[in-house]
């Protein structure tokens, strides 16, 4: 079905993206189109360039060639904070939470761009400042409830377990009120129960909050169950795209994962 919808306008459109570090070509002419409202997965062996693509989308790396368009606006060359403010949220692979803050403050810090009061208002905690703080707290509490973080709300993030930190990482991205969510290996290093919880959360985020999800994951079971469409990368080039069923039977993909003699 996805292939038929191709001419429908894409929410995120990556065209002929190339990026190299010195002599190493991390990604070569990769094109990806993500439609509004779907769960789109990017898979591939280690070093295939998956996270590099995320870093290019969120502006942390600047790709040398190609274009990345989000809702018809070019992202290439735009600063990371501006890209985030357009509605592109990111949950990092190796947890990148703000260690010195509580869970609540971590989530609140994702809403800085949604608060309009200035330095003077903050210094005196004037009416507008207090009102906005309370409003945003309210919104953050919704996210806390959504991801069942109530009990750790005021704990420092450094005191939480790995699985819980991963969930806070997702919550922080969600607190930004994004239109599209880039999730990098959300279940790596988790046990079965935590994986199932995380899968449930991702589906809920996609369906109930109506947020497009782009997923990088090594857990094939999770990818096949969740994704509407999948792209497979190998050595920085796209080798297949399609529904989970199409991709898993693609001979190129089988070769990339299992080797030639299969």
């Amino acid at each position: 079905m996805a292939v038929m919808n191709q001419d429908k306008s894409l929410q995120l459109e990556i065209k002929d993206l190339s990026m190299s570090f010195g002599g190493i070509k991390a990604i070569r002419n990769v094109s990806i189109g993500v439609q509004s409202g779907e769960i789109y997965s990017i898979i591939g062996p280690n070093g295939a360039g998956k996270t590099t693509i995320f870093n290019c989308i969120s502006g942390i790396y600047k790709a040398q060639q190609g274009s990345i368009r989000f809702e018809n606006r070019e992202l290439l060359g735009v600063k990371p904070d501006r890209i985030a403010q357009m509605g592109v949220a990111r949950a990092f692979q190796n947890i990148a939470l703000f260690k010195g803050m509580t869970v609540l403050d971590n989530l609140m810090s994702a809403r800085v761009h949604l608060m309009k009061y200035g330095l003077l208002g903050a210094a005196l905690y004037l009416g507008a400042c207090q009102r906005e703080e309370v409003q945003n707290r309210d919104a953050v509490e919704d996210v806390i409830e959504f991801l069942d973080l109530q009990s750790v709300r005021k704990s420092p993030v450094s005191s939480l377990s790995y699985g819980l930190q991963k969930r806070v990482e997702l919550a922080r991205a969600l607190a930004m009120k994004p239109k599209i969510l880039l999730v990098d290996e959300p279940v790596s290093g988790m046990n079965l129960e935590e994986r199932e919880d995380m899968a449930r959360y991702i589906i809920d985020i996609n369906e109930e909050m109506d947020i497009t999800v782009v997923l990088i994951e090594h857990d094939m079971g999770l990818v096949m169950d969740l994704s509407d469409r999948v792209t497979v990368l190998n050595f920085g080039t796209k080798i297949a795209e399609g529904t989970p069923g199409e991709v898993s039977s693609n001979p190129e993909v089988v070769k990339a994962y299992l080797g030639d003699e299969h």
Binding site: G59, P80, A84, R111, L119, E133
Partner: peptide, 28 residues
């Protein structure tokens, strides 16, 4: 007051993880 509002949170976010802070929409 600065410490408990978005200003203080942005400061700490930059201290703890500047790249993540940027990706959360905080202008470094």
């Amino acid at each position: 007051n600065l410490a408990r509002t978005k200003i203080g949170r942005s400061f700490v976010a930059i201290r703890d993880r500047d790249i993540a802070a940027e990706a959360m929409g905080i202008s470094l």
